[in-house]
Design a protein around this nucleic acid. Structure first.
Lengths: 200, 200
DNA sequence: TGCGAACTGGTACTCAGTACCGTACCGGAC
DNA sequence: GTCCGGTACGGTACTGAGTACCAGTTCGCA
């Protein structure tokens, strides 16, 4: 058997094991959620299928809900990085325009794996607690944008309102796309476009 | 002793008892939350101070979080009634204008008891789970507005976007008022006003 | 006064989440 | 190769939320 292609970073055994455990947990959890629904799956069930101890589950994820968002985490963080790197615009329309681009790009990344997106949206649709939690994630993103705008010298009003409006457009687009990954980015972009209609 | 002024509806004893139990629970809960914080209070603690059984607590409130929002419920429902009674405008700017008036009025009612509003906001500030739950409440209100707009023949885009934008303005105003009940309504109204700045 | 319905509080249970502890394993030094 | 320190692991035991069930009481009404 040939030696496997040496990956760019041959992670130490310990970390590889951890990464594998993490993946096993996520896989087991999504399987079980698909089979029985979120509420009918216990952490013990997940741990058993993932072949780890119940305690270990909580070492990787703060609570049962966190597993559902584990894959989104990295994508969302990329959006914050992107905004920090954007030119320092501080007026309302300018800030919203920047956030529009970020939001649309975020949508594209969230829907690269269409099937995963569908599963995720389905879980949110069926479980209010998960919708709540999703809201918290986006609120965190909004707060980062707010802080960044304040750092750039934007007025408190702009710093608060721009990310909040952007979040509204994202949410509106998400609702209008109705779970279809192919429509999300377009629907969100369209929602931003309609804001002009507010000027009368 | 004079007979107490006969209230408009002399509720039957049973319902008066229930109302009293409910009030005792709410009072006990807010006292305890103020003393120790939300997380450090157990349902058993609340039930004991309210002098009801633990089971009874769950008969009045679905879960521990619900108590925190019990007083807001009626006020929020009034907002939906008000919107349903408003003239049937279906364009984006018109719908947002109507929602602006509703939102500002809602703010006034939420802050009539300034001290209660402050306590409530403090709880939300310190407990992410409660912020999540508050988000769910407003999402429910948003969905009612959405359904009403659809009933009136508004396009799906307007029906979805207008309430979402209104919610964003409410949230922005809430953040800018920074827990001060006297500034809430003004800050929310101001947020709506700034939307014009989006037209460039 | 007495009957049916509804409310009450208690018991017992499941499950999420936390604290603690002994064990096993990895990484590095010799 | 071997030893050692740190870290991750899984098990046990606990608290507290929320649910199901049940027997006793109280209210509304005839």
């Amino acid at each position: 058997m040939l030696r496997p292609m040496p990956t760019s970073e041959p992670l130490p055994l310990r970390e590889r094991k951890q990464q594998r455990a993490r993946e096993q947990i996520v896989t087991a959890a999504f399987e079980l959620f698909a089979e029985r629904g979120f509420a009918a799956v216990t952490v013990t069930d997940i741990a058993e299928r993932a072949e780890v101890g119940r305690t270990t589950f909580f070492r990787y994820f703060g609570d049962k809900q966190e597993v559902v968002f584990s894959d989104e985490q990295a994508i969302v963080e990329k959006a914050t990085t992107r905004f920090r790197a954007a030119p320092p615009v501080t007026d309302l329309a300018g800030a919203v325009a920047q956030l529009r681009a970020i939001a649309v790009e975020l949508c594209r990344e969230l829907t690269v794996d269409g099937e995963h997106y569908r599963r995720h949206e389905r879980l949110l649709r069926e479980n209010p607690e998960l919708r709540d939690r999703s809201g918290r994630k986006f609120a965190g993103l909004r707060d980062v944008f707010r802080a960044t705008l304040l750092d750039r010298g934007a007025s408190p009003e702009v710093a608060v309102l721009a990310p909040q409006v952007a979040l509204a457009c994202y949410a509106a687009g998400n609702a209008l796309a109705d779970g279809d990954p192919d429509r999300l980015a377009g629907a969100v972009d369209d929602a931003f476009g309609r804001l002009r209609g507010l000027a009368r």
